[in-house]
């Protein structure tokens, strides 16, 4: 196995047992994520994109196939604190300040006080929230809260950033801005990012690799290596390449749906 392969899934399956019979959340998923990739997972509800991310994070246990993260089992990777996870809801603790929220993982991981302060300042700057460390979450807008939750995931040295529809609840304008910021953050930190989204433009704009998924059973229908350059101003979305990739994603989504209709 190549050291550059951060996530390797082969024939990965996950079946939930429910009262209405088994639900195939994932079936025979094969995927490799390389170091430094920005991988988006796109597909309709129930296609298993979030489940896949949760498997990588060892928050779900696959029922078949193999999955390695940094060459280890996902649970070993979780224990080695290999990734930071950003949920759809910012999920900041209302009783902690923004700085206090970012300190949370550092406290749990036993960093020294001086180191914590230094790291909090650094990630606050990274997500452009310098000066807001002393505020409480309710004093910030939804977009700022989500940035703080990204900062929280960046505060410790995990090479992988897993993001589950982090901007799903935000309006279009804030979303564009955060997408741009996320790209520049990815560029500066060199992290490997797994990103779940519902939005085709978001997936195409952000990713080096787009994984198109479809439901019942949850599976991959297409993996698109993006031809777009690493440098991506917002208006790249009007370019021909961008529109072509978006087309291919849409076709992949439609094909996935065609099976069941």
């Amino acid at each position: 196995m190549d050291i550059e392969d951060v996530v390797v899934a082969s024939d990965l399956s996950l079946t939930f047992k429910t009262a209405d019979g088994p639900v195939h959340a994932l079936k025979d998923v094969n995927l490799t994520i390389n170091k430094g990739d920005f991988v988006s997972f796109i597909g309709p509800s129930g296609c298993g994109k979030t489940t896949f991310l949760r498997c990588v994070a060892a928050l779900e246990m696959p029922t078949g196939g193999t999955l390695t993260v940094n060459g280890m089992s996902p649970d070993a990777a979780r224990k080695a604190r290999a990734y930071g996870y950003v949920f759809q809801a910012a999920g900041l603790y209302p009783w902690r300040t923004i700085a206090g929220n970012i300190r949370l993982p550092l406290e749990i991981m036993g960093y020294s006080k001086a180191e914590m302060g230094e790291r909090v300042d650094r990630v606050l700057e990274l997500v452009e929230l310098s000066g807001f460390g002393g505020k409480f979450p309710w004093q910030l807008s939804g977009g700022m809260q989500q940035r703080a939750s990204i900062a929280r995931a960046l505060a410790f040295d995990a090479d992988i950033l897993l993001m589950d529809e982090p901007f799903g609840a935000l309006d279009e304008i804030v979303r564009d801005r955060l997408n741009e910021e996320l790209l520049s953050l990815w560029d500066r930190t060199g992290k490997t990012i797994g990103f779940v989204t519902h939005s085709i433009p978001e997936a195409v704009y952000l990713s080096t690799k787009i994984v198109v998924m479809s439901p019942r059973p949850g599976r991959i229908t297409d993996v698109i290596e993006s031809p777009l350059p690493k440098e991506r101003p917002l208006d790249i979305r009007d370019s021909r390449e961008f529109i072509e990739v978006a087309h291919r994603v849409r076709d992949g989504l439609r094909a996935g749906h065609g099976d069941e209709l």
Binding site: L59, R78, R81, Y83, Y85, F87, A89, G91, I108
Partner: peptide
């Protein structure tokens, strides 16, 4: 605490 909040702590291996 919500499921997500508990999951978050799990990702920190708390």
């Amino acid at each position: 605490p919500s499921r997500e909040q508990l999951d978050l702590l799990r990702t920190y291996n708390a």
